[in-house]
Design a protein around this nucleic acid. Structure first.
Lengths: 231, 231
DNA sequence: TGATTAATCTCGATT
DNA sequence: AATCGAGGTTAATCA
């Protein structure tokens, strides 16, 4: 990886044409030849970039460009399309190269999946006497996280989220609508379970007759550890 | 902007939880405190990041962390949510800071401008035998996008929009009113050209005797590429 | 200003 | 390989 801080201007042509006026920016050249142009603000999206696979060719400026103060011109050409990025370097303030090696990559911890597993094992958290029917109970619009039965034999559909937001309630509502069309299941009660439930979601859920259940992830994991330790 | 190349591990908690195992990466700290963790591959999206507004606090490792080889711990906390990014630095290979200043930002060449250029080059899209008179044909209330002549020698005024809405038709109507006062031009026919024309605009245009022309940007760009490749 | 939509989207999963 | 859908999306546009 090569890091260059420089006063530069750039032009991109491809899906669209765009220009970057002269300013001081960070230019990152990754091992695969891809290039990122970052300013000192904004979010993670670069001002301009070239995705791999691409090639980088460094050229001397012609007389005209040199007269404008250009020191070097970088031509970054995409390998599979005619997308190109042209960077005019006017003043290089920093230039360093680093060996980074291959990255093991991001490991996403499926807290939501874990919560589902734990709640299935600790189904009594829905209330005493509840019984698990199954996880990932299939419907036409996708599986419901958990289907259970309450002590009276009534069906209970559970939607699990890490953060309980309005769209989670909407999702559960759609499932309930479908499940209630099944004469063997109806009436189906809804439970919206999450580590944290937003006030708006709570109001909407209440309005639709859906029960809210706040899950204590740490406590549930503790229970899980305790039970596995017993056997 | 601060650039750090380091062997590091990271953990994010927020909408989801995710971990980055120990590896050598680029850490970018922008002026607004936002942080990017980049590997030496992939596209412009960082492996992990924190968007502004956020704050960065550097802490000494506790004994346990120090025993694992941690030199420094960075706590990056989002200002408006409980999103947090924790970076454990194990070995700092590079560390430099740079003053970048404010960036003027990306200037996208408007699709509308590009459409005008393309339609001027592919003026036959108005119908066989049409000839370009000029782009940006001046009138008292501003320039008409394109003035052309049809095979019979009649003047054609074209208004180009990305999204054809009612006010675009109104605008073209005003131009036509003015142009038709010129005895050398009148009668001037109107063409309302856009990538997409709203039904209301289409009805109004038809009512005023204005022709609607839907432009296929991709196809027109393809034509442009083909023609430039020939010469 | 909040909602909606497009993006040089990216990224993973599934067909 | 191609397509589909979600994203800690981001960014622009519209009401």
């Amino acid at each position: 990886m090569r890091l260059v801080v420089a006063r530069c201007a750039a032009r991109y042509t491809g899906r669209l044409t765009a220009e970057l006026p002269l300013a001081t920016r960070l230019v990152v050249v990754k091992a695969d030849g891809s290039v990122l142009l970052h300013s000192d603000g904004g979010s993670y999206k670069p001002l301009n970039w070239m995705s791999p696979p691409c090639s980088l060719a460094v050229a001397e400026p012609d007389d005209d460009a040199a007269a404008r103060g250009v020191v070097e011109i970088w031509h970054v050409q995409h390998a599979k399309s005619d997308d190109r990025l042209e960077i005019e370097l006017h003043e290089v303030l920093h230039d360093s190269a680093h060996e980074l090696g291959v990255d093991p990559g991001l490991v996403k911890d499926g807290v939501e999946a874990h919560l589902q597993k734990l709640l299935a094992e600790q189904i009594h958290l829905l209330g005493a006497g509840h019984v698990l029917v199954r996880r990932e109970y299939p419907t036409a619009i996708g599986p419901v996280d958990i289907l259970a039965k309450d002590p009276a034999g009534g069906a209970v559909a559970v939607e699990i989220k890490r953060r309980g937001d309005i769209d989670g309630v909407e999702q559960l509502t759609r499932y309930l609508e479908l499940l209630n069309r099944d004469p063997h299941l109806t009436p189906v009660r809804g439970v919206f379970a999450a580590q944290e439930i937003k006030p708006q979601a709570r109001v909407l859920a209440h309005d639709r007759g859906i029960t809210c259940l706040v899950l204590d992830y740490e406590a549930m994991r503790g229970m899980d550890d305790a039970s596995t330790r017993l056997f």
